[in-house]
Design a protein around this nucleic acid. Structure first.
Lengths: 166, 166
DNA sequence: TGATAATATTGAGAAAGTCAATGATTTGTC
DNA sequence: GACAAATCATTGACTTTCTCAATATTATCA
């Protein structure tokens, strides 16, 4: 067996140290990609989403329906169009989510008297209760997701992200 | 026209001020949901992703393939399994992405001599050039996405997110 | 009044995510 | 050394999510 040192050097045979580090992924943390905010953000949202979905599952909810419910419970009386914009969802996706939550009796559609084309979402009593339960789960998810950050750092992160997206 | 003050208060008829504010979504920014880091993160990644995809489109790339290419170009010699973990993708998704990039001639699979089950990804010359082009696009996307933040704030954000996800 | 635009909705098709099964290979155990 | 169990890449089926065009209803504007 040859000493596993191929002849050419440039970029043809980087098989010299395939799995160098311990066993983890620390090896990748210095890559260009790992420095991109976009990558870090995607990873954070992926992890957070997965955890939140898990914690919400016993309520028969996922993150998306939760967001719609939360807005219906917010007292801001959003229309579906506004929700579509605020939650970055296609109008047709909002329809599906609202259908589901309305079928569960958590929210109601009320046609806006000012503009009878649009439907305003309002929470039912049951919806408010469901939301109260769900919020506990998402708070726990946030707690776990951000456990590496101090309270001050969490506020910092929240404010920086708010600056970015608003 | 009545003074638009419905008889019941609680949660039955919130049709009083459907579209109060100017025209935008400032109205929703004080909702509970808008305070959740998870929501802000999802929004940031959604916006950033969409922009990056747009800027990468003339290279025939999207964010996901770009990430795989970036790791193949990183000099860390990742296996597909490692990529799956690092990028939060199902192994089968990695297969599809690698197939595509390999068909384009941007990367190659090399079976790890230390473990002949796993394949290590390495960039070709053409892949390195493609990556160089692509990185310009993603830098521009990051620039635009984070335009509201100062350089110091961008570093802060990067470090906070890194703490969260690593 | 009539033309134009916006809202919710439907439906179709593409893309992405999830999961189980498989062949090849490695690792651990006797 | 042989055998069982675990791991990697891969395939395929399946579900969920995304994206887009078309439509009926209602508003807005000239």
């Amino acid at each position: 067996m040859p000493p596993s040192i191929p002849a050419d050097a440039a970029h043809a045979s980087p098989l010299t140290q395939p799995t160098a580090g311990p066993g983890g992924e620390e090896r990748f943390q210095r890559s260009d990609l790992a420095q991109e905010v976009a990558f870090l953000t995607a990873r954070a949202r992926g992890r957070g989403n997965a955890l939140a979905n898990r914690l919400l599952s016993d309520l028969g909810l996922k993150v998306r329906p939760f967001a719609v419910l939360a807005m219906a419970c917010s007292g801001t009386n959003p229309s579906q169009r506004e929700l579509s914009g605020f939650l970055d969802l296609d109008p047709s996706q909002v329809v599906a989510l609202v259908d589901m939550l309305e079928a569960r009796g958590a929210i109601r559609r009320e046609t806006d008297p000012r503009d009878r084309r649009s439907k305003i979402l309002v929470a039912t009593e049951a919806g408010l209760e469901l939301y109260a339960q769900a919020v506990q789960r998402t708070r726990e998810a946030e707690e776990q997701t951000l456990h590496a950050l101090s309270p001050a750092e969490r506020d910092q992160l929240r404010e920086l992200l708010a600056k970015v997206v608003f």
